[in-house]
């Protein structure tokens, strides 16, 4: 432990982090701090204590095994901009700024659980799984369903998200988002695609209270890839499947429309740029 105080802990190993969390019930687990610090500044959130994961070296870095890209939860987003998954790389590259990406982490993006977070549609489209570690061991759960409401997840109080596993594939992957301006913007809506072995899997951000995908949408998207459906068909399927929020940034109608446009754009890219793997 690099620093321990009644309301602050700076552990160096996952075990120390779990122990520090157990000793400080209600502590906020902070990774890069890029979300927490503005929240504290604006008073939109308070914290009784911090357990920081910034110095837990074992949580930082990307490895590849036979099936998955394995990203430590503390891996900074800057470490994902050249990831061997074009969708993940695109989502990472369009997150914040270079000065934010060195500190913002994939784990923070997932656990903050807001529907507009950049990396989430990519993880959903790619069928990611999460490793959740507690004192009693590690459980692996699908990312699909992990987020239950904006800001809420199935992570138990005595657990830490320690790794994100994204299945490797030889297909086509991409991510797009639209916002209110072209620089440093939070996604008004976003979408990700993985197209492999003739099947398309789409996922959407800010299309509902949690990251969202739909078998019906994917069936029409796959048909569009094969030329058996039209862009209008896919836009209609997306419009039925999504339940976007209405807020000062955009109306639900605008979001529904834009999500259809993004879906068609991604399938078109998969068809034209995807190559034989898609």
């Amino acid at each position: 432990m690099l620093l321990a105080a009644p309301r602050f802990a700076l552990p160096e190993t996952p075990e120390e982090a779990l122990a520090a969390l157990a000793e400080r019930p209600g502590a906020v687990v902070v990774a890069g701090g890029t979300e927490m610090m503005p929240d504290l500044l604006w008073g939109t959130r308070s914290a009784d204590a911090f357990v920081s994961l910034r110095r837990v070296a074992a949580l930082r870095g990307v490895t590849v095994d036979d099936d998955d890209l394995v990203m430590g939860a503390g891996t900074p987003v800057s470490g994902l901009t050249t990831a061997p998954d074009a969708g993940l790389a695109a989502a990472a590259t369009s997150l914040g700024t270079p000065l934010v990406r060195t500190e913002a982490t994939i784990g923070g993006n997932v656990v903050s659980a807001l529907p507009y977070r950049n990396l989430l549609p990519t993880l959903l489209a790619g069928g990611a799984r999460l490793e959740l570690t507690s004192a009693t061991g590690v459980r692996t759960v699908p990312f699909d369903g992990f987020i239950t409401a904006p800001g809420r997840t199935r992570l138990a109080e005595d657990e830490l998200l320690t790794a994100v596993r994204l299945p490797r594939h030889g297909g086509f992957a991409d991510y797009v988002k639209v916002g209110r301006r072209n620089a440093q913007f939070v996604a008004t809506v976003s979408a990700a695609v993985v197209s492999r072995d003739g099947g398309v899997r789409l996922a959407f951000g800010n299309a509902g209270p949690t990251p969202l995908r739909s078998d019906d949408v994917d069936a029409v998207a796959t048909a569009l890839l094969d030329g058996r459906a039209t862009p209008e068909d896919l836009r209609a399927a997306v419009a039925v499947a999504v339940d976007p929020p209405e807020d000062p940034v955009a109306s639900a109608d605008y979001r529904r429309h834009a999500l259809g446009v993004l879906a068609v754009r991604l399938v078109t890219r998969a068809r034209t740029d995807g190559g034989p793997g898609a």
Partner: peptide, 16 residues
């Protein structure tokens, strides 16, 4: 060493 936004870093996480 890398350049970052000092406003986003909880200082106590930068021990040493």
């Amino acid at each position: 060493p890398h350049v970052l936004c000092a406003c986003l870093v909880p200082a106590a996480t930068a021990v040493g």
